[in-house]
Design a protein around this nucleic acid. Structure first.
Length: 423
RNA sequence: GGACGGGUGGCAGAGCGGUUUAAUGUACCUGACUCGAAAUCAGGCGUUGGGGCAACUCAACCGUGGGUUCAAAUCCCACCCCGUCCGCCA
């Protein structure tokens, strides 16, 4: 949620930054300014009345305590209170409208966020290794999974419909190994504290991290209950701190969490969704940081490096791109995507998305800390997938396929998988 | 699911219709004492919103939302959460 004061005091800046997203979000500025004017005018009116009422009520109290009559003061008070109630309702209505607009307005892209309209304009900012070379024509993960019995796409469709996965045998074991490998890496070597949260959360939590109201149609929900299936662990993990007041010594907070992620992704099908690349339920390790504003961009660079390192340890070729303003997510001010190379599929697949939301989420969640000057300040929140697992699975199996039809996994996975050969 | 008890400032905890501007403790900040610290003493210290160049001032906030009343932390209703007991259950 944007700072209403920033919009009020610096509307041109807000308009200009929102405009870089190229989706017309800046139109909200004028609506916000107008509602803000109305709101303040009504507040002044109703607060004058309340002040008068309070004065008289106090006097009534004083007289009653002295056993004196106060009938003359009581006349007209009923009407005064009714008027106040009516004006309060008007203020609440304007407040509600203002909140709805602010909740649907995206974050301001960072001043140095690259210009651009779409994914095609995202500059590459980092790269590791090079595409694996093969003496044979590499298979894609769907063919590999069928040949080695790693997954059963037909069975998944039968029990849950298209867009779901059933891992089988060595495939199921590899999925489990990757979860443990990533959690161990981030907790033992990168300083994150593991948390294991519920996979369903209330609407208030979804609103805190910005999934609601905007992405209501993209989420699964439990019928008859105020519960949504989490689309990312970012939601439950960040919301652990909703409505909290931290102290400077609590920061920075680093959390790593495993959850499955549930996304309806309604309407898409085709090459982009073949096999495991885009599914309704997938496993993910998420990294969340809550930090002081002064350090948040350094923390973002570290977060990106943590995500990249996982791929480096696995020996996978990747490139890192910075999202241009037109491709930036709703809550992000700056974002890096780490894309791993999948040789059989012949594409770079996004596995990590590391965002700095600055105080955008913290304002929604009323997440603050008491800084060194004893002031309560909104924290900055960062989140990054410390890797979406099916796509990592794709890259691993496609990269490490052998001429003999087997897969030879990197040694670093041996303690987790128990072996390195899948045949 | 049922019965009872409870939810008050960062934390603990009193208040249970009108001198509450929410007591007190603790934490925190400033100062004194000290070589320094601890202890002690003195002072300060909630959040949000409105107005004001400012000093300051006004309003709202006691789990959430309604209601009663001239007036609600306090009374009533609903819901959420926590505790204790009972029932059900893998």
């Amino acid at each position: 949620m944007l700072d209403i004061r920033l919009v009020r005091e610096n509307p041109d800046l807000v308009r200009a930054r929102l405009a870089t997203r190229g989706n017309g979000a800046e139109a909200a500025v004028d609506e916000v300014l107008e509602l803000d004017r109305q709101r303040r005018a009504k507040i002044q009116e109703v607060e004058r009345l309340k002040s008068a009422r309070n004065t008289i009520s106090r006097e009534i109290g004083v007289r009653k305590s002295r056993k004196e009559a106060a009938d003359d003061l009581l006349t007209g008070m009923r009407e005064k209170s009714d008027l106040i109630a009516r004006l309060d309702a008007e203020v609440a209505a304007v407040d509600g409208q203002l909140e709805q607009i602010l909740l649907r307005t995206p974050n301001l892209p960072h001043a140095r966020c690259p210009a651009g309209a779409s994914a095609a304009d995202n500059p590459e900012v980092g790269r590791y290794g090079s595409p694996a070379a093969f003496e044979f024509k590499p298979l894609d993960h769907v063919a590999l999974a069928e040949r080695l019995g790693l997954a059963d796409f037909a069975a998944a469709a039968k029990i849950s419909g298209s867009g779901f996965l059933v891992f089988t045998g060595a495939g199921a074991r590899l999925e489990r190994a990757l979860i443990n490998f990533l959690l161990d890496l981030h907790t033992r070597e990168h300083g994150f504290t593991e948390v294991n949260t519920p996979f369903v959360v209330r609407a208030a939590a979804m609103q805190g991290t910005g999934q609601l109201p905007k992405f209501h149609e993209d989420m699964y929900r439990v019928e008859g209950e105020d519960l949504f299936l989490v689309p990312t662990a970012e939601v439950p993990v960040t919301n652990l701190y909703r409505e909290e007041l931290l102290t400077v010594s609590d920061l920075p907070v680093y959390h790593a969490a495993y959850t499955p992620c549930f996304r309806r992704e309604a309407g898409s099908a085709g090459r982009e969704t073949r096999g495991m690349t885009r599914v309704h339920q997938f496993d993910k390790i998420e990294l969340v940081k809550i930090v002081e504003p002064a350090t948040s961009y350094d923390e973002l660079e570290k977060l990106r490096r943590n995500a990249e390192r996982a791929l480096e340890l696995l020996g996978l070729h990747y490139r890192t791109i910075e999202l241009c303003a037109g491709d930036l997510g709703f809550g992000a001010a700056k974002c890096y995507d780490v894309e791993v190379w999948a040789p059989g599929t012949g594409a770079y697949l996004e596995v990590s998305s590391c965002s700095n939301c600055e105080d955008f989420q913290a304002r929604r969640m009323n997440l603050r800390y008491k800084n060194a000057e004893q002031k309560n300040v909104f924290c900055h929140t960062l989140n990054g997938s410390g890797t979406a697992l099916p796509r990592l699975f794709i890259a691993l199996t496609e990269t490490y396929q052998q001429a003999d039809g087997n897969i030879k996994l990197p040694e670093v996975l041996r303690p987790y998988f128990g072996d390195t050969i899948i045949k």
